[in-house]
Design a binder for these strands. Structure first.
Lengths: 247, 247
DNA sequence: TAGTGGTCTAGACCACGAC
DNA sequence: TCGTGGTCTAGACCACTAA
Protein backbone atom coordinates (compact mmCIF):
# COMPACT_ATOMS: atom_id res chain seq x y z
CA UNK A 1 0.00 0.00 0.00
CA UNK A 2 2.72 2.46 0.97
CA UNK A 3 5.25 1.62 -1.72
CA UNK A 4 8.92 2.52 -1.55
CA UNK A 5 9.73 5.39 0.74
CA UNK A 6 12.41 7.95 -0.16
CA UNK A 7 15.69 7.71 1.72
CA UNK A 8 15.18 10.85 3.80
CA UNK A 9 11.90 9.48 5.12
CA UNK A 10 13.33 6.10 5.92
CA UNK A 11 16.05 7.81 7.94
CA UNK A 12 13.48 10.08 9.60
CA UNK A 13 11.29 7.09 10.46
CA UNK A 14 14.22 5.22 12.01
CA UNK A 15 15.15 8.18 14.15
CA UNK A 16 11.51 8.75 15.07
CA UNK A 17 11.27 5.19 16.33
CA UNK A 18 14.32 5.73 18.51
CA UNK A 19 12.65 8.78 20.01
CA UNK A 20 9.15 7.37 20.50
CA UNK A 21 10.52 4.15 21.98
CA UNK A 22 12.44 6.20 24.50
CA UNK A 23 15.81 4.94 23.32
CA UNK A 24 16.57 8.60 22.71
CA UNK A 25 15.07 10.22 25.79
CA UNK A 26 13.81 13.79 26.14
CA UNK A 27 16.73 16.15 25.99
CA UNK A 28 19.05 13.53 24.49
CA UNK A 29 21.34 14.55 21.70
CA UNK A 30 20.94 13.03 18.26
CA UNK A 31 23.92 11.97 16.16
CA UNK A 32 25.37 14.79 14.08
CA UNK A 33 24.36 15.36 10.47
CA UNK A 34 27.63 13.94 9.20
CA UNK A 35 27.34 10.92 11.41
CA UNK A 36 23.76 10.20 10.38
CA UNK A 37 24.82 10.57 6.74
CA UNK A 38 27.63 8.04 7.01
CA UNK A 39 25.70 5.68 9.28
CA UNK A 40 22.76 5.41 6.88
CA UNK A 41 24.79 5.77 3.71
CA UNK A 42 23.26 9.01 2.39
CA UNK A 43 24.54 12.48 1.53
CA UNK A 44 24.58 15.02 4.34
CA UNK A 45 21.86 16.99 2.59
CA UNK A 46 19.58 13.99 2.95
CA UNK A 47 20.43 13.64 6.62
CA UNK A 48 19.54 17.31 6.92
CA UNK A 49 16.25 16.67 5.25
CA UNK A 50 15.46 13.78 7.58
CA UNK A 51 16.04 16.10 10.52
CA UNK A 52 13.86 18.70 8.79
CA UNK A 53 11.02 16.19 8.95
CA UNK A 54 11.51 15.56 12.64
CA UNK A 55 11.82 19.26 13.35
CA UNK A 56 8.63 19.91 11.42
CA UNK A 57 6.99 17.16 13.45
CA UNK A 58 8.05 19.03 16.54
CA UNK A 59 10.01 16.07 17.86
CA UNK A 60 13.44 17.67 17.91
CA UNK A 61 15.02 21.09 18.11
CA UNK A 62 18.36 22.08 16.64
CA UNK A 63 20.79 24.54 18.09
CA UNK A 64 23.26 25.62 15.42
CA UNK A 65 26.79 24.84 16.46
CA UNK A 66 25.64 22.68 19.35
CA UNK A 67 23.57 19.81 18.01
CA UNK A 68 20.06 18.45 17.61
CA UNK A 69 18.13 17.40 20.68
CA UNK A 70 14.94 15.52 21.49
CA UNK A 71 12.40 18.12 22.46
CA UNK A 72 10.95 18.36 25.95
CA UNK A 73 7.20 18.49 25.91
CA UNK A 74 4.66 19.95 28.26
CA UNK A 75 1.34 21.37 27.23
CA UNK A 76 -0.71 24.04 28.90
CA UNK A 77 -4.24 22.75 29.54
CA UNK A 78 -6.87 25.30 28.60
CA UNK A 79 -10.25 24.35 30.07
CA UNK A 80 -13.65 25.39 28.80
CA UNK A 81 -16.19 26.23 29.99
CA UNK A 82 -14.70 26.31 33.53
CA UNK A 83 -12.45 29.14 32.48
CA UNK A 84 -15.36 31.31 31.52
CA UNK A 85 -17.79 30.42 34.28
CA UNK A 86 -19.75 33.44 35.39
CA UNK A 87 -18.49 33.33 38.96
CA UNK A 88 -14.92 33.71 37.76
CA UNK A 89 -15.27 37.09 36.19
CA UNK A 90 -18.19 37.93 38.41
CA UNK A 91 -15.82 37.60 41.36
CA UNK A 92 -13.12 39.70 39.78
CA UNK A 93 -10.49 37.17 38.72
CA UNK A 94 -8.59 38.22 35.62
CA UNK A 95 -10.18 36.34 32.76
CA UNK A 96 -6.88 36.08 30.95
CA UNK A 97 -5.48 33.68 33.51
CA UNK A 98 -8.16 31.20 32.65
CA UNK A 99 -7.78 31.61 28.94
CA UNK A 100 -4.12 30.88 28.84
CA UNK A 101 -3.43 28.58 31.71
CA UNK A 102 -1.74 29.47 34.95
CA UNK A 103 1.46 31.49 35.27
CA UNK A 104 0.92 33.40 32.05
CA UNK A 105 2.11 36.98 31.81
CA UNK A 106 0.26 39.44 29.61
CA UNK A 107 2.44 41.73 27.54
CA UNK A 108 2.09 44.28 24.76
CA UNK A 109 -1.52 45.25 25.38
CA UNK A 110 -2.74 47.54 22.61
CA UNK A 111 -6.20 49.09 22.70
CA UNK A 112 -7.77 51.21 19.99
CA UNK A 113 -10.35 51.54 17.25
CA UNK A 114 -9.81 49.50 14.09
CA UNK A 115 -11.92 48.76 10.99
CA UNK A 116 -13.90 45.59 11.66
CA UNK A 117 -12.55 42.52 9.81
CA UNK A 118 -15.21 40.61 7.92
CA UNK A 119 -15.81 37.85 10.46
CA UNK A 120 -16.15 40.47 13.21
CA UNK A 121 -18.57 42.68 11.27
CA UNK A 122 -20.73 39.65 10.49
CA UNK A 123 -20.94 38.60 14.11
CA UNK A 124 -21.37 42.00 15.72
CA UNK A 125 -23.87 43.10 13.10
CA UNK A 126 -21.99 46.22 11.99
CA UNK A 127 -20.98 47.40 8.51
CA UNK A 128 -17.79 45.85 7.19
CA UNK A 129 -14.82 48.07 8.07
CA UNK A 130 -16.93 50.08 10.54
CA UNK A 131 -14.92 51.13 13.60
CA UNK A 132 -14.84 48.62 16.46
CA UNK A 133 -12.77 48.59 19.62
CA UNK A 134 -9.82 46.23 19.43
CA UNK A 135 -7.85 44.95 22.40
CA UNK A 136 -4.86 42.89 21.42
CA UNK A 137 -2.31 41.26 23.66
CA UNK A 138 0.29 38.57 23.88
CA UNK A 139 0.76 35.94 26.58
CA UNK A 140 4.13 34.73 27.73
CA UNK A 141 4.89 31.69 29.90
CA UNK A 142 8.44 31.26 31.16
CA UNK A 143 9.83 33.66 28.56
CA UNK A 144 8.09 31.80 25.78
CA UNK A 145 5.31 33.50 23.80
CA UNK A 146 2.43 31.05 23.63
CA UNK A 147 -0.64 32.99 22.57
CA UNK A 148 -1.80 36.08 20.71
CA UNK A 149 -5.31 37.38 21.30
CA UNK A 150 -7.36 40.17 19.81
CA UNK A 151 -10.77 41.03 21.16
CA UNK A 152 -13.28 43.08 19.18
CA UNK A 153 -16.24 44.93 20.71
CA UNK A 154 -18.89 47.31 19.39
CA UNK A 155 -17.89 50.89 20.17
CA UNK A 156 -21.24 51.75 21.75
CA UNK A 157 -20.50 49.26 24.54
CA UNK A 158 -17.01 50.52 25.24
CA UNK A 159 -17.13 54.34 24.95
CA UNK A 160 -16.29 55.91 28.25
CA UNK A 161 -15.79 52.59 30.03
CA UNK A 162 -12.64 51.01 31.38
CA UNK A 163 -12.71 48.63 28.44
CA UNK A 164 -10.97 51.44 26.56
CA UNK A 165 -8.10 51.31 29.02
CA UNK A 166 -5.17 48.95 28.90
CA UNK A 167 -6.19 47.67 32.31
CA UNK A 168 -9.92 46.93 32.08
CA UNK A 169 -10.23 46.60 35.85
CA UNK A 170 -11.41 43.87 38.23
CA UNK A 171 -13.00 40.92 36.46
CA UNK A 172 -11.92 42.13 33.04
CA UNK A 173 -14.09 43.23 30.16
CA UNK A 174 -16.88 40.76 30.89
CA UNK A 175 -17.44 42.35 34.30
CA UNK A 176 -17.60 45.76 32.56
CA UNK A 177 -20.11 44.45 30.03
CA UNK A 178 -22.20 42.96 32.83
CA UNK A 179 -22.33 46.38 34.50
CA UNK A 180 -24.10 47.60 31.37
CA UNK A 181 -26.52 44.71 31.41
CA UNK A 182 -24.87 42.83 28.54
CA UNK A 183 -22.76 40.32 30.43
CA UNK A 184 -22.13 37.22 28.30
CA UNK A 185 -24.54 34.35 28.85
CA UNK A 186 -23.18 31.99 26.23
CA UNK A 187 -19.99 31.37 24.27
CA UNK A 188 -19.22 29.67 21.00
CA UNK A 189 -15.66 28.70 20.14
CA UNK A 190 -14.54 27.75 16.67
CA UNK A 191 -11.20 25.94 16.46
CA UNK A 192 -9.03 25.33 13.43
CA UNK A 193 -5.43 24.24 12.96
CA UNK A 194 -3.42 26.16 10.40
CA UNK A 195 0.01 27.54 9.61
CA UNK A 196 0.89 30.86 11.14
CA UNK A 197 1.19 33.97 9.04
CA UNK A 198 4.76 35.29 8.98
CA UNK A 199 3.86 38.02 11.50
CA UNK A 200 2.25 35.51 13.82
CA UNK A 201 5.22 33.19 13.55
CA UNK A 202 7.51 36.07 14.46
CA UNK A 203 5.36 37.17 17.42
CA UNK A 204 5.17 33.62 18.78
CA UNK A 205 8.82 32.84 18.11
CA UNK A 206 7.94 29.97 15.79
CA UNK A 207 11.05 29.88 13.68
CA UNK A 208 10.81 26.31 12.40
CA UNK A 209 9.29 25.61 9.00
CA UNK A 210 6.06 23.71 9.35
CA UNK A 211 5.07 25.12 12.72
CA UNK A 212 1.33 25.16 13.38
CA UNK A 213 -1.08 27.23 15.41
CA UNK A 214 -4.56 26.68 16.74
CA UNK A 215 -6.84 29.56 15.84
CA UNK A 216 -9.72 29.90 18.28
CA UNK A 217 -12.45 32.38 17.47
CA UNK A 218 -14.77 32.93 20.38
CA UNK A 219 -18.13 34.65 20.12
CA UNK A 220 -19.63 35.96 23.37
CA UNK A 221 -23.41 36.34 23.40
CA UNK A 222 -25.61 38.30 25.76
CA UNK A 223 -28.88 36.57 24.97
CA UNK A 224 -29.02 36.62 21.18
CA UNK A 225 -26.70 39.55 20.79
CA UNK A 226 -23.03 39.02 20.05
CA UNK A 227 -21.13 41.47 22.26
CA UNK A 228 -17.55 40.37 21.69
CA UNK A 229 -15.45 38.43 19.20
CA UNK A 230 -12.10 37.20 20.43
CA UNK A 231 -9.59 35.70 18.05
CA UNK A 232 -6.77 33.77 19.68
CA UNK A 233 -3.74 32.28 18.01
CA UNK A 234 -2.01 29.59 20.06
CA UNK A 235 1.23 27.76 19.56
CA UNK A 236 -0.22 24.38 18.64
CA UNK A 237 2.55 22.46 20.39
CA UNK A 238 2.12 24.40 23.63
CA UNK A 239 -1.56 23.75 24.29
CA UNK A 240 -4.15 21.14 24.99
CA UNK A 241 -7.78 22.27 24.79
CA UNK A 242 -10.37 20.71 27.06
CA UNK A 243 -14.12 21.05 26.60
CA UNK A 244 -16.81 19.61 28.82
CA UNK A 245 -20.55 19.53 28.14
CA UNK A 246 -23.68 17.59 29.07
CA UNK A 247 -25.32 14.98 26.85
CA UNK B 1 13.84 41.93 14.83
CA UNK B 2 13.55 39.31 12.13
CA UNK B 3 16.99 39.68 10.59
CA UNK B 4 17.95 38.43 7.18
CA UNK B 5 15.75 35.65 5.82
CA UNK B 6 17.23 32.78 3.80
CA UNK B 7 16.54 32.81 0.09
CA UNK B 8 14.09 29.91 0.10
CA UNK B 9 11.95 31.71 2.66
CA UNK B 10 12.01 34.97 0.78
CA UNK B 11 10.82 33.14 -2.31
CA UNK B 12 8.18 31.28 -0.27
CA UNK B 13 6.97 34.54 1.28
CA UNK B 14 6.66 36.20 -2.13
CA UNK B 15 4.63 33.33 -3.48
CA UNK B 16 2.53 33.21 -0.31
CA UNK B 17 1.65 36.85 -0.78
CA UNK B 18 0.53 36.16 -4.32
CA UNK B 19 -1.75 33.43 -3.03
CA UNK B 20 -3.19 35.23 0.00
CA UNK B 21 -3.80 38.38 -2.02
CA UNK B 22 -5.76 36.33 -4.50
CA UNK B 23 -3.44 37.14 -7.38
CA UNK B 24 -3.01 33.39 -7.62
CA UNK B 25 -6.57 32.18 -7.09
CA UNK B 26 -7.67 28.79 -5.78
CA UNK B 27 -6.84 26.14 -8.31
CA UNK B 28 -4.39 28.40 -10.19
CA UNK B 29 -1.15 26.92 -11.34
CA UNK B 30 2.11 28.23 -9.94
CA UNK B 31 5.17 28.78 -12.13
CA UNK B 32 7.30 25.68 -12.59
CA UNK B 33 10.30 24.97 -10.40
CA UNK B 34 12.73 25.92 -13.16
CA UNK B 35 10.87 29.11 -13.84
CA UNK B 36 10.75 30.13 -10.18
CA UNK B 37 14.46 29.38 -9.95
CA UNK B 38 15.39 31.59 -12.88
CA UNK B 39 12.90 34.32 -11.99
CA UNK B 40 14.22 34.72 -8.44
CA UNK B 41 17.83 33.90 -9.29
CA UNK B 42 18.25 30.77 -7.19
CA UNK B 43 19.09 27.12 -7.84
CA UNK B 44 16.17 24.82 -8.60
CA UNK B 45 16.74 23.02 -5.33
CA UNK B 46 16.00 26.28 -3.52
CA UNK B 47 12.84 26.81 -5.56
CA UNK B 48 11.87 23.27 -4.55
CA UNK B 49 12.48 24.14 -0.95
CA UNK B 50 10.32 27.25 -1.20
CA UNK B 51 7.50 25.11 -2.54
CA UNK B 52 8.15 22.64 0.28
CA UNK B 53 7.35 25.43 2.71
CA UNK B 54 4.09 26.27 0.98
CA UNK B 55 3.14 22.61 0.72
CA UNK B 56 3.86 22.16 4.41
CA UNK B 57 1.70 25.22 5.08
CA UNK B 58 -1.05 23.47 3.19
CA UNK B 59 -1.35 26.32 0.70
CA UNK B 60 -0.46 24.38 -2.44
CA UNK B 61 -0.51 20.84 -3.73
CA UNK B 62 1.87 19.41 -6.30
CA UNK B 63 1.01 16.84 -8.89
CA UNK B 64 4.21 15.29 -10.29
CA UNK B 65 4.39 15.76 -13.99
CA UNK B 66 1.55 18.26 -14.01
CA UNK B 67 2.50 21.20 -11.84
CA UNK B 68 1.88 22.90 -8.50
CA UNK B 69 -1.53 24.37 -7.79
CA UNK B 70 -3.13 26.62 -5.18
CA UNK B 71 -5.11 24.38 -2.92
CA UNK B 72 -8.89 24.51 -2.69
CA UNK B 73 -10.13 24.72 0.84
CA UNK B 74 -13.31 23.66 2.52
CA UNK B 75 -13.58 22.50 6.09
CA UNK B 76 -16.10 20.15 7.63
CA UNK B 77 -17.70 21.81 10.65
CA UNK B 78 -17.93 19.47 13.60
CA UNK B 79 -20.32 20.82 16.23
CA UNK B 80 -20.34 20.04 19.94
CA UNK B 81 -22.35 19.52 21.98
CA UNK B 82 -25.22 19.51 19.43
CA UNK B 83 -23.80 16.42 17.83
CA UNK B 84 -24.04 14.49 21.04
CA UNK B 85 -27.34 15.77 22.35
CA UNK B 86 -29.32 13.02 24.04
CA UNK B 87 -32.27 13.25 21.68
CA UNK B 88 -30.03 12.45 18.74
CA UNK B 89 -28.97 8.99 19.80
CA UNK B 90 -32.12 8.59 21.87
CA UNK B 91 -34.05 8.90 18.63
CA UNK B 92 -31.87 6.48 16.78
CA UNK B 93 -29.76 8.63 14.48
CA UNK B 94 -26.34 7.20 13.81
CA UNK B 95 -23.98 9.05 16.10
CA UNK B 96 -21.19 8.90 13.56
CA UNK B 97 -22.97 11.31 11.27
CA UNK B 98 -22.78 13.97 13.92
CA UNK B 99 -19.18 13.29 14.81
CA UNK B 100 -17.83 13.67 11.36
CA UNK B 101 -20.08 16.11 9.61
CA UNK B 102 -22.66 15.27 7.01
CA UNK B 103 -22.14 12.97 4.05
CA UNK B 104 -19.45 10.89 5.73
CA UNK B 105 -19.20 7.21 4.94
CA UNK B 106 -17.95 4.80 7.56
CA UNK B 107 -15.51 2.17 6.37
CA UNK B 108 -13.24 -0.52 7.79
CA UNK B 109 -15.10 -1.10 11.03
CA UNK B 110 -13.12 -3.45 13.25
CA UNK B 111 -14.48 -4.66 16.58
CA UNK B 112 -12.66 -6.79 19.12
CA UNK B 113 -10.92 -7.05 22.46
CA UNK B 114 -7.59 -5.29 22.89
CA UNK B 115 -5.30 -4.56 25.82
CA UNK B 116 -6.26 -1.17 27.25
CA UNK B 117 -3.79 1.62 26.40
CA UNK B 118 -2.68 3.64 29.41
CA UNK B 119 -4.99 6.60 28.92
CA UNK B 120 -7.94 4.22 28.51
CA UNK B 121 -7.13 2.13 31.56
CA UNK B 122 -6.81 5.30 33.66
CA UNK B 123 -10.18 6.61 32.55
CA UNK B 124 -12.16 3.38 32.68
CA UNK B 125 -10.62 2.34 35.98
CA UNK B 126 -9.25 -0.99 34.80
CA UNK B 127 -5.79 -2.49 35.09
CA UNK B 128 -3.35 -1.35 32.41
CA UNK B 129 -3.42 -3.80 29.50
CA UNK B 130 -6.63 -5.42 30.78
CA UNK B 131 -8.95 -6.43 27.95
CA UNK B 132 -11.37 -3.76 26.75
CA UNK B 133 -13.66 -3.72 23.75
CA UNK B 134 -12.29 -1.68 20.89
CA UNK B 135 -14.34 -0.39 17.97
CA UNK B 136 -12.23 1.29 15.33
CA UNK B 137 -13.36 2.82 12.08
CA UNK B 138 -12.46 5.27 9.38
CA UNK B 139 -14.59 8.02 7.86
CA UNK B 140 -14.47 8.99 4.24
CA UNK B 141 -15.97 12.07 2.59
CA UNK B 142 -15.97 12.25 -1.19
CA UNK B 143 -13.31 9.54 -1.48
CA UNK B 144 -11.07 11.36 0.94
CA UNK B 145 -10.27 9.82 4.34
CA UNK B 146 -10.80 12.52 6.93
CA UNK B 147 -11.01 10.80 10.29
CA UNK B 148 -9.92 7.73 12.22
CA UNK B 149 -11.74 6.82 15.41
CA UNK B 150 -11.28 4.14 18.03
CA UNK B 151 -13.73 3.69 20.83
CA UNK B 152 -12.89 1.76 24.01
CA UNK B 153 -15.48 0.33 26.40
CA UNK B 154 -15.33 -1.89 29.51
CA UNK B 155 -16.07 -5.48 28.53
CA UNK B 156 -18.73 -5.91 31.23
CA UNK B 157 -20.87 -3.33 29.44
CA UNK B 158 -20.51 -4.88 26.01
CA UNK B 159 -20.63 -8.66 26.50
CA UNK B 160 -23.60 -10.08 24.72
CA UNK B 161 -24.81 -6.71 23.42
CA UNK B 162 -24.91 -5.37 19.90
CA UNK B 163 -21.94 -3.19 20.77
CA UNK B 164 -19.86 -6.27 19.98
CA UNK B 165 -21.23 -6.26 16.44
CA UNK B 166 -19.94 -4.22 13.56
CA UNK B 167 -23.34 -2.61 13.30
CA UNK B 168 -24.27 -1.53 16.81
CA UNK B 169 -27.89 -0.93 15.82
CA UNK B 170 -30.26 2.03 15.97
CA UNK B 171 -28.84 5.00 17.86
CA UNK B 172 -25.38 3.49 18.05
CA UNK B 173 -23.49 2.43 21.11
CA UNK B 174 -24.86 5.20 23.34
CA UNK B 175 -28.38 3.89 22.83
CA UNK B 176 -27.13 0.41 23.79
CA UNK B 177 -25.44 1.78 26.91
CA UNK B 178 -28.62 3.65 27.84
CA UNK B 179 -30.55 0.37 27.66
CA UNK B 180 -28.29 -0.88 30.44
CA UNK B 181 -28.85 2.23 32.51
CA UNK B 182 -25.44 3.74 31.77
CA UNK B 183 -26.28 6.17 29.00
CA UNK B 184 -23.78 9.05 28.88
CA UNK B 185 -24.80 12.19 30.76
CA UNK B 186 -21.66 14.22 30.21
CA UNK B 187 -18.73 14.39 27.80
CA UNK B 188 -15.25 15.79 28.04
CA UNK B 189 -13.16 16.34 24.92
CA UNK B 190 -9.44 16.96 24.97
CA UNK B 191 -7.99 18.41 21.77
CA UNK B 192 -4.38 18.60 20.69
CA UNK B 193 -2.67 19.30 17.40
CA UNK B 194 0.23 17.04 16.48
CA UNK B 195 1.96 15.29 13.61
CA UNK B 196 0.46 12.00 12.51
CA UNK B 197 2.24 8.74 13.15
CA UNK B 198 3.34 7.08 9.90
CA UNK B 199 0.39 4.62 10.10
CA UNK B 200 -2.07 7.45 10.66
CA UNK B 201 -0.61 9.45 7.80
CA UNK B 202 -1.02 6.42 5.55
CA UNK B 203 -4.59 5.75 6.66
CA UNK B 204 -5.58 9.38 6.14
CA UNK B 205 -3.70 9.76 2.88
CA UNK B 206 -1.53 12.54 4.29
CA UNK B 207 1.48 12.18 2.05
CA UNK B 208 2.97 15.66 2.47
CA UNK B 209 5.73 16.27 4.99
CA UNK B 210 4.54 18.50 7.77
CA UNK B 211 0.91 17.43 7.68
CA UNK B 212 -0.93 17.78 10.96
CA UNK B 213 -3.83 16.09 12.68
CA UNK B 214 -6.16 17.05 15.48
CA UNK B 215 -6.35 14.35 18.12
CA UNK B 216 -9.61 14.46 20.04
CA UNK B 217 -9.98 12.21 23.04
CA UNK B 218 -13.53 12.07 24.30
CA UNK B 219 -14.54 10.66 27.67
CA UNK B 220 -18.21 9.75 28.08
CA UNK B 221 -19.52 9.73 31.64
CA UNK B 222 -22.64 8.15 33.06
CA UNK B 223 -22.77 10.13 36.27
CA UNK B 224 -19.26 9.84 37.70
CA UNK B 225 -18.44 6.69 35.84
CA UNK B 226 -16.50 6.80 32.60
CA UNK B 227 -18.19 4.33 30.25
CA UNK B 228 -16.38 5.04 27.00
CA UNK B 229 -13.17 6.59 25.72
CA UNK B 230 -13.11 7.58 22.06
CA UNK B 231 -9.91 8.66 20.38
CA UNK B 232 -10.35 10.43 17.07
CA UNK B 233 -7.65 11.50 14.67
CA UNK B 234 -8.74 14.15 12.18
CA UNK B 235 -7.03 15.63 9.17
CA UNK B 236 -6.30 19.06 10.62
CA UNK B 237 -6.86 20.82 7.30
CA UNK B 238 -10.24 19.17 6.76
CA UNK B 239 -12.00 20.19 9.95
CA UNK B 240 -13.27 23.07 11.97
CA UNK B 241 -14.36 22.29 15.52
CA UNK B 242 -17.17 24.25 17.09
CA UNK B 243 -18.00 24.23 20.80
CA UNK B 244 -20.82 26.07 22.48
CA UNK B 245 -21.39 26.45 26.22
CA UNK B 246 -23.09 28.74 28.73
CA UNK B 247 -21.27 31.36 30.81
C1' DT C 1 40.17 25.25 16.76
C1' DA C 2 37.24 21.60 15.58
C1' DG C 3 32.66 20.25 15.07
C1' DT C 4 27.88 21.67 14.44
C1' DG C 5 23.66 22.93 11.99
C1' DG C 6 21.98 26.03 8.04
C1' DT C 7 22.15 27.33 3.50
C1' DC C 8 23.16 26.98 -1.24
C1' DT C 9 24.99 25.36 -5.83
C1' DA C 10 25.01 22.86 -10.10
C1' DG C 11 24.26 19.37 -11.60
C1' DA C 12 21.92 14.28 -12.28
C1' DC C 13 18.27 10.69 -12.87
C1' DC C 14 13.55 9.08 -12.35
C1' DA C 15 8.47 8.55 -12.95
C1' DC C 16 4.72 10.75 -14.40
C1' DG C 17 1.43 13.90 -17.11
C1' DA C 18 0.06 16.25 -21.15
C1' DC C 19 0.30 16.43 -25.86
C1' DT D 1 8.41 13.58 -26.55
C1' DC D 2 8.98 17.23 -23.51
C1' DG D 3 8.18 19.50 -19.28
C1' DT D 4 6.97 18.52 -14.59
C1' DG D 5 7.84 17.63 -9.69
C1' DG D 6 10.68 14.44 -6.55
C1' DT D 7 14.85 12.79 -5.13
C1' DC D 8 19.67 12.63 -4.52
C1' DT D 9 24.77 13.65 -4.80
C1' DA D 10 29.05 15.80 -3.55
C1' DG D 11 30.59 19.21 -2.60
C1' DA D 12 31.02 24.46 -0.59
C1' DC D 13 30.81 28.37 2.75
C1' DC D 14 28.95 30.56 6.84
C1' DA D 15 27.93 31.51 11.76
C1' DC D 16 27.80 29.48 15.79
C1' DT D 17 29.15 26.57 20.06
C1' DA D 18 32.12 24.31 23.02
C1' DA D 19 36.47 23.19 24.59
Amino acid sequence: MAGEQPAYRRVADRLRELILSGELAEGARLPSLREIASRYGVATSIATRALDVLRTDGLVVSRPGAGTYVRRFTRIVRKSPGRLAHDRWGAGAAIQDHDTGPRARTVDVVVGDVPAPGFVADALGVEPAAAVLSRSRRFVVEERAVQLATSYLPVELTRGTRIEHTDAGEGGIYARLAEQGVGPTRFTERVIGRSPLPEEAAALGLTADGARVLEITRFAYAGDRCVEVNRMVLDSDAYELSYSFPA
